[in-house]
């Protein structure tokens, strides 16, 4: 554990930029940090698109795709760091590895920051993350007012930070202050739900009227899947001179439509159910963890105000 004074933050940023193409939060998403010190806000879009771009050229028929430098993400919230970890597992485990993801994610570095002030829409604690969850980070920062406490979470993080000089040893006062901040933030996240119970209850709800009722409101617009830190449906298509990978969504009607026109999930009801089953039942079955990190983006931005937390509570009540 070390301490960085706030006045030295620009030095840390500049120093990280010597090794990485460094991205930091902006209102709409993570973007390359130019010559400013980023404001440590939570962007509308999670950082998944940095390693898994919404539009990505896989190869060109008429040339090579240039390789980019290792990417550093600065100021990643615990939910988003965990989201990246979940995606990493999906993309790299099993008989095949997705090397586009693997090359980018594994050559990168994740510098997380704790959430002193969780929002009313945050429910990361349901999934064992919490406002100071460090899983998926290489370095982790805690804002203690006059500075940040910096913790190396991985060996990569330790190796990196050990050669950055302007760090101080934290005082007892600093550590006490950190403990107070953590306790205050954690106390704001109450009433958890056990994802294992959700998984089990979903086993009984395939034919439930819940899906039809939700479908009456859901527009099938897929905004929730685009903003979700763990959603990763994609499609592979050809342009004239390149093969590209683009984000897709299980909520889109064409997602499962076969060339013959046959579609196994023609109704919004079918597709909503698929999304919830995949995240909270099938993924849990596979990894003992749900495909949700409780970031609250789908709750905040759903155009028809569907609230995933209400749905989870209904699932527990009715399953």
């Amino acid at each position: 554990m070390r301490k960085l004074l706030k006045k030295d933050l620009p030095r840390l940023i500049e120093w990280l930029k010597t090794s990485y193409l460094l991205y930091g939060p902006t209102e709409y998403g993570f973007a390359p940090i130019a010559d400013h010190t980023p404001e440590l806000i939570t962007p509308i879009r999670p950082p998944k698109g940095i390693f898994f771009p919404q539009y990505q050229v896989l190869f060109r028929y008429d040339g090579k795709v240039p390789k980019s430098k290792g990417i550093g993400l600065f100021g990643v919230r615990p939910c988003d760091a965990k989201g990246l970890l979940i995606l990493n597992r999906i993309f790299t485990q099993g008989p095949y590895r997705d090397n586009y993801w693997q090359d980018q994610y594994q050559s990168g570095i994740i510098i997380g920051i704790g959430c002193n002030q969780p929002q009313p829409t945050c429910f990361c604690h349901w999934f064992g993350i919490g406002p100071f969850g460090k899983e998926g980070c290489d370095l982790f920062l805690t804002d203690i007012g006059d500075g940040f406490l910096i913790e190396a979470v991985s060996k990569k993080g330790e190796d990196l930070i050990s050669s950055f000089d302007p760090l101080l040893p934290p005082t007892d006062q600093d550590l006490k202050r950190r403990d107070e901040i953590v306790a205050r933030a954690e106390a704001q996240l109450k009433d958890g739900i056990d994802p294992k119970l959700i998984k089990e209850r979903l086993d009984n709800l395939w034919e439930s009227p819940i899906w039809g009722e939700l479908a009456e409101r859901c527009l099938s617009c897929a905004l929730c899947t685009y903003l979700c830190p763990t959603c990763h449906c994609f499609d592979i298509q050809d342009e004239e001179k390149a093969r590209v990978r683009i984000w897709d969504s299980c909520l889109f009607p064409l997602f499962t439509q076969e060339a013959s026109g046959h579609n196994p999930r023609p109704e919004i009801r079918d597709r909503l159910r698929q999304r919830i089953m995949h995240k909270f039942n099938y993924l849990y079955l596979q990894y003992k963890e749900a495909g949700c990190v409780g970031c609250g983006r789908c709750v905040i931005f759903c155009p028809v105000n569907l609230d995933l937390r209400e749905l989870m509570r209904r699932i527990l009540d009715e399953g």
Partner: peptide, 24 residues
């Protein structure tokens, strides 16, 4: 089984059938 498969390697989710990827 027939599905609208895309990646073929159990990542893209097009061919999901319950807990299975039909491709993998």
């Amino acid at each position: 089984m027939e599905k609208n498969m895309s990646c073929g390697i159990g990542k893209c989710n097009h061919c999901r059938l319950g807990p299975y990827y039909v491709c993998k």
